[in-house]
Computed example of a mutant assay.
Amino acid sequence: MNRYMPITGHDCNIPSLLIDTQAPIDVLHDAAAYRIRAVTQLLENFAISDDAPKGTVVLQELSLVCSILLRDGCDLMDVAGRRMQGQLAA
Rank of each mutant, 00 (worst) to 15 (best):
N2I: 07
R3M: 10
R3V: 14
R3A: 12
R3S: 09
R3E: 13
Y4F: 15
M5N: 07
M5F: 07
P6Y: 08
I7D: 05
G9C: 12
G9L: 06
C12L: 12
I14S: 11
P15D: 07
P15G: 07
S16P: 02
T21E: 03
A23S: 13
P24W: 10
I25R: 11
I25S: 09
D26R: 12
L28P: 04
H29Q: 15
A31I: 06
A31R: 12
A31V: 05
A32Q: 00
Y34C: 11
Y34V: 08
R35V: 03
R35C: 13
R35W: 06
I36Y: 04
R37S: 06
R37T: 07
R37C: 03
A38C: 13
V39D: 05
V39N: 04
T40C: 11
T40E: 15
T40R: 15
Q41D: 15
L43T: 09
L43N: 10
L43M: 14
N45K: 14
F46Q: 13
A47F: 09
S49I: 05
D50Q: 14
D50E: 15
A52P: 02
A52M: 11
G55D: 05
G55S: 12
T56N: 05
V57P: 01
V57K: 04
V57Q: 06
V58I: 13
Q60R: 10
E61L: 08
L62G: 01
L64R: 09
C66R: 02
C66E: 03
I68F: 10
I68Y: 09
I68R: 07
L69W: 06
R71G: 09
D72M: 08
C74F: 08
D75Q: 01
D75S: 01
L76D: 00
D78S: 08
V79D: 01
A80E: 01
R82K: 06
M84C: 02
M84V: 04
M84T: 00
M84Y: 02
Q85H: 00
Q85C: 00
G86C: 01
Q87E: 00
Q87Y: 02
L88H: 02
A89W: 02
A90W: 01
